[in-house]
């Protein structure tokens, strides 16, 4: 009897105290926080600055990354912050969320997302996710940027607004170069009919920024429709070596 009861209790226990809660999301080492201090150091690099134009991690020596200094970065965003360096285990986690049906993992990042945005960006009127094309959304069943935006919205009490729609099902940006990315996105986003954007301050939310083509293009459309300031938040960005 005992031999059956004890494992049952253990099992119930593990369901209650969900066993993964105690280990780091990135390296599975024991950790009180969702991400252990070693991994935070490695991927969030708290002492490294971000390029204000594209969110890239740039160390402390320069003000902007090389691309943005030479004028090829996005120009329509007032400031971009990125939580971490899009590589290694941090990249794996983002891919697991997007491609392996695990959006709930993002909930465990909420504290990091909040300190990253609140400490670096001015308060907005609304938080706006980058939309996905309906076809892609139908396949995946969720939009990770909307999950991110709704976390920020819920925790900070900022309105979540779907101001943008995506009208074209484009090729994945990852397969393209910088110029092709900009080409690929031309005319992809539209502002929803009837929304009033004049003089608004907006936080745009995306999962990853690399060249900034997606965020830049959507910010351009929003500004053309009267938005005053646009700040962007993403989970991952590149790093300048």
């Amino acid at each position: 009897m005992k031999s059956e009861v004890v494992p049952m209790i253990k099992k119930l226990g593990s369901l209650l105290w969900y066993d993964q809660e105690e280990s780091c999301l990135l390296c599975s080492a024991k950790s009180v926080e969702p991400i252990c201090s070693g991994c935070r150091e490695e991927y969030f690099q708290p002492r490294s600055s971000r390029c204000p134009s594209c969110g890239k991690l740039i160390g402390n020596l320069s003000e902007r990354c090389k691309d943005c200094s030479s004028g090829i970065g996005p120009k329509t965003l007032d400031k971009v912050v990125s939580l971490g360096y899009y590589g290694g285990a941090w990249r794996d986690l983002i891919c697991n969320v997007k491609y392996k049906g695990q959006p709930y993992l993002l909930l465990r990042l909420s504290d990091y997302m909040i300190s990253c945005t609140v400490n670096n960006l001015p308060p907005p009127d609304a938080v706006v996710p980058i939309p996905m094309h309906p076809n892609k959304l139908a396949e995946r069943g969720f939009n990770q940027t909307e999950v991110l935006a709704s976390i920020l919205s819920g925790k900070l009490g900022i309105q979540l607004r779907h101001y943008l729609i995506r009208t074209k099902d484009t090729a994945p940006q990852t397969s393209l170069g910088r110029n092709e990315r900009i080409q690929n996105l031309r005319g992809v986003f539209q502002v929803k009919e009837g929304v009033k954007l004049k003089d608004k301050i907006i936080w745009l939310v995306d999962d990853v920024i690399t060249t900034g083509a997606t965020l830049g293009e959507s910010a351009k459309i929003l500004k053309e429709n009267g938005v005053k300031e646009i700040y962007a938040f993403c989970l991952g960005a590149g790093k300048e070596e």
């Binding site: 697991n96 392996k100 049906g101 695990q102 709930y104 139908a138 995946r140 069943g141 969720f142």
Partner: peptide, 29 residues
């Protein structure tokens, strides 16, 4: 039955936590 539930555009969905090691499965698949 160790599945993590989440909200999809089709309503509730879930991802299995037990056999994740050979590739995560979810209810939309």
């Amino acid at each position: 039955i160790h599945c993590q539930e989440w909200t999809s555009i089709y309503g509730y969905a879930a991802t299995c936590q037990e056999c994740k090691s050979i590739g995560p499965l979810n209810s939309l698949q």
